[in-house]
Structure formats: C-alpha cells, structure tokens
Write a protein that binds this DNA or RNA. Sequence first.
DNA 1: TCATAACCGGAATCTTAGCTCCGGATGCTG
DNA 2: CAGCATCCGGAGCTAAGATTCCGGTTATGA
Lengths: 190, 190
Amino acid sequence: MNVIPAEQRTLRADARRNRERILASGRDLFARLGPEAQMDEIAAHAGVGIGTVYRHFPTKEALLTEMVRVRFQEFSEIALSVDDVDPREALETIMRRSAEAVEGDAGFQLAMMGSNELEWEGVEQQKAALAEVVGRVISRAVAAGAVREGFTFEDFAMVMCGVTATMYYKPGSADWRRYLELMLHGVCAP
Amino acid sequence: MNVIPAEQRTLRADARRNRERILASGRDLFARLGPEAQMDEIAAHAGVGIGTVYRHFPTKEALLTEMVRVRFQEFSEIALSVDDVDPREALETIMRRSAEAVEGDAGFQLAMMGSNELEWEGVEQQKAALAEVVGRVISRAVAAGAVREGFTFEDFAMVMCGVTATMYYKPGSADWRRYLELMLHGVCAP
DNA sequence: TCATAACCGGAATCTTAGCTCCGGATGCTG
DNA sequence: CAGCATCCGGAGCTAAGATTCCGGTTATGA
C-alpha cells in the first residue's frame, strides 16, 4: 500500500493528468466559493472520482494548502519585482498589485486575512518569506520618510486584511479600490 | 400546539425566566465563539434543555439574529448621541466607540462585516436605521470640509469592516487601534 | 386543592460533508 | 501481448451538529 503521492516518484501518465485536473478544478472552485467548496464538487468538476482526489491529497486541507502556497509565492514575487525602485512607489505597487492578485479568489482571501478556520500548515513558511521581502521595502520607505514613522509589516498586513475583507464580504464590487486609496493616504507621511 | 413565542401573550413565569437565560447565555457564547457556538452549549450554559431553546427560538439563526439586532441598536444609539457635536469629532467618536463596542464580540463582528454566512434577515432594518444616522453625520463632516470629498457611508462601512476584520482575525490583540488611527488619518481631508 | 394548559428535558432523528474501501480498469515493461 | 503494479470510481461509513418529538412536570386560576 503506497500512500505517497510524492512528486519524485514518476507518476503514471493518467495519474499526473488527473492530479493537474484536480488542482485546476480546486483552484477554480476554491476561488469561487472559498473553503465552502466541497470535495465532491471539486472531484466532479475535475471529471474524476472522489477517491482519486483523496489519493492525491490526503485531506481537504492538504489540497487547500497546496493552492494557497502557490498564491503566496506569486505575492512574494510581486514584492521582489519592486525591491529596488523608489520605496514609496514600491510599497504602493505591492499593495495595489497584491490586492489585484487576490481579487476574485475567496479562498486565498481567507488565508490572507489569517483566518484560523483552517490550519494552513506549511504556508507559514511562505508567509515568513513574504514578511522578509515586504519588510525590507517598508523599512526603506520609513527611512526615506515616505510613510508614517513606525509603520510596520504588521500594519501592512492589517491594511491588506482590511482590503481583503472588503473584497470577501462584497464580492464583485470594486469598492475595495476606493478603500485602498484611503489607506494609502492614511499610510503616507504627513 | 402553540408555536408562537411572542412577546404579546403573557408567558408563564418560568418560561420568561428561561427565555432571558437563553438570551444571556447565547450572548455570552456567541460573543466568545461566534456562530461556531453550538445550540447544546448554549442550552447547557443557560441551564435548560435543548428543547426549551428551540421552543423560544425556532432556529439557531433566529437566536443569533435577535442578538445581533440588539447590538445594532446600541450602535445607532452611539451615533445618535453625537449627532449634534462638531462633525469631525462626531465621526471619530462614532468610529472609535463603535469599534470598542464590537471588541470581543465575535458574532457581531461577523455580522458587522456583512458576512453572508447567515441570513440575518430582520437585521436589515436596523442597518438601514444606522445608515441613516451615520450618513447624516458624514454629510455634515464632508460639508464642513472635515473629511475627504466624496467620503460616503459605504466607505465608513468598509473602514469598520476592516477594523472589525482585524479584531476578528487577531482576537485579543489591540492592533486594531493603530489601524483605526491610520484610517482616521486617511479619511481626514488633505 | 384540582384540573389543565403551558412548559420542560434530552434521547432520538435527520442531514451534511469529509473520508475509506475495494473490486475493476489501465498504463507500463519485457 | 501478457503480467502486474498502479490507479480509478463512487457507494457507503462516520462524525458532528441542528432540529424534532413526546412522556413527564409545573404554574395558574377557579
């Protein structure tokens, strides 16, 4: 009985195909419904049986985690891509583009807000990496006097949490943009 | 078979007592755990049987709704109490005191964020009343040039949503205060 | 004090969703 | 193309939590 759905051992062609389909289906439904998305639906939408889903991902949480991890990576990449431009602008870009990246992905929105509804274990690492990169940008911005004294990564997280909450609880609306502007105005130095 | 737990028909003494207990217990547990709070617990904590809970409130939602409604009322009262002071200060007070009123009440926090997780039907009315009162204060503030041009009740709601989200997802932390300051700074006119 | 309508408690029921299991199908290797 | 390890499907198991049901209890008014 082999339980390891690991990447290392070469999967049989059909298995690999199914794995991809499940991931895609999961991404889609999870984004649309958040954690409410049910395993049956994900399986059906992927065109496979439930058993197949569970062979590739031992629990629902594992599936969600896998997808959230990828998202966080995108996040870090955004932050990295502006690591060397004008700090004020960099911060703005990070916030704006991050928000856009999250738009329409209810599942990730919850993860973003730090929802303890799920364990998300394994995502912590990604988060730390993000904190690292963004933290650097923030320090630079503060040092340059571009944002309020004492602004921290924690604050950044709260702001994004607020923006995300707005998206999550008002799906389809673009109101979060106005909100973000408000925040950016609040963040910048007097 | 009489199903109506109405206020009009005089309840038997013990019935009224139980109803109060259930409400109190619900308030407590709902505040602590949010909608996760289970009917068994609420019954037990109130010292009555589950059946009794269901006799007074036909569904869990009905119980939650009842309590959320009361909370919203408090909210409106806060807003009313500052309806005539300096608009800038009034708005600040509303935000600050509202936030404080919500602190520690996870259930209401969700309702506040506009969570569609529950139907909250019957609360809409309270919400409208709140919008009315707060809207007036906002108009005055805008007219007086105390806050940014174009600031609306919608924006106010988003800000509170953000503050609330911070509380909800970081229970016990007082970080939301710093966040609120940030917001107030962002809201005020340049 | 009695009769009785109004209540009460909580075991049992119903429902939903995650997860397991195993007979059968299928890609790979020689 | 045979043999087999790997993989697949989806009925059914299980847990959790909301809600119902009904035999027993209690307040109330005469």
